[in-house]
């Protein structure tokens, strides 16, 4: 079975982002970019399925500027077989991403799509669910364990009060949560090998998708700043302040 793994290029999770002074967005020039951490988990899961002989081929897809090729290379170095880059500058909303992925699925016929539960830049937590809807497929979101048996997938999901197990008919969309696995680091030989793996480049128009966003960003601003308070010297002082000053206990 072929696997499709969408990987997003995002501002690295260690970067403290800055809001642009004109309120148009956050500063991304000269900022370290990486693969969305949840997508690394998705790639790892796909590679493990290939190592187990369940998957035959892994295709990494990224949508965004030409520089997304870097994130596809990372996926290839981790063990994906080939890449597809859909080049589109500017904001690409989950609805557009889902439509583009649907068009790629029509060409590639994967048996399973594994993706991140959330991109840490837009924090939408939406694309996987939307792709499942457009395909008319089942969805196993926030997955912390995935088992494939025959034509079904069993997924343990992280939900509000604990864990839930669902059984999905395949093909399906899986979105990875933090505890699905611990992604590997690509070894140097694998990074070298990845350079020779193919990446196909497409435009949204090649896939028949109009990338116009539905949401207009009117402004982006910093949240109200919290003032650091003060240090207290002892537990007794802390409890006294909480009782008599903050009046919260």
């Amino acid at each position: 079975m072929k696997l499709l793994v969408p990987v997003k290029r995002v501002v690295d999770y260690n970067v403290k982002v800055r809001v642009k002074s004109d309120g148009s967005g956050v500063e991304t020039a000269n900022v370290k970019m990486s693969m969305n951490p949840f997508d690394e988990i998705a790639v790892e899961e796909a590679v493990r399925l290939k190592e187990k002989g369940i998957a035959t081929e892994i295709i990494a897809v990224s949508i965004g500027p030409a520089a997304c090729a870097e994130q596809i290379r990372t996926a290839l170095a981790m063990g994906a077989d080939r890449g597809i880059l859909v080049e589109q500058d500017g904001v690409v909303e989950p609805l557009t991403v889902a439509k583009l992925l649907k068009a790629i699925i029509a060409k590639e016929s994967p048996g399973l799509v594994i993706m991140g539960k959330q991109a840490i830049d837009d924090d939408m937590n939406a694309t996987g669910q939307m792709l499942a809807a457009l395909m008319g497929w089942s969805q196993g979101t926030f997955a912390s364990k995935l088992t494939i048996e025959g034509d079904r997938a069993t997924v343990i999901r992280e939900i509000d009060g604990g864990l839930e197990t669902v059984s999905l008919s395949l093909p399906a969309i899986i979105t990875a949560d933090l505890r699905l696995n611990e992604p590997r680091y690509a070894s140097l030989p694998n990074i070298m090998k990845a350079r020779k793996k193919p990446i196909e480049t497409l435009k949204p128009a090649d896939l028949g998708v109009d990338p116009t966003p539905r949401l207009t960003v009117l402004k982006v601003e910093e949240p109200p700043k919290r003032q650091a308070g003060r240090k207290v010297a002892s537990v007794a002082e802390l409890v006294d302040k909480l009782r008599n000053e903050a009046k919260v206990i």
């Binding site: 989950p94 939408m124 937590n125 669910q129 939307m130 969805q139 979101t141 939900i159 509000d160 949401l215």
Partner: peptide, 18 residues
């Protein structure tokens, strides 16, 4: 967990960006 799982699926079926 329920809202985040269901609402984006609804949105895509309605051709809406959630």
């Amino acid at each position: 967990a329920i809202g985040k799982n269901v609402m984006p699926r609804v949105a895509a079926l309605l051709d809406v960006q959630p």
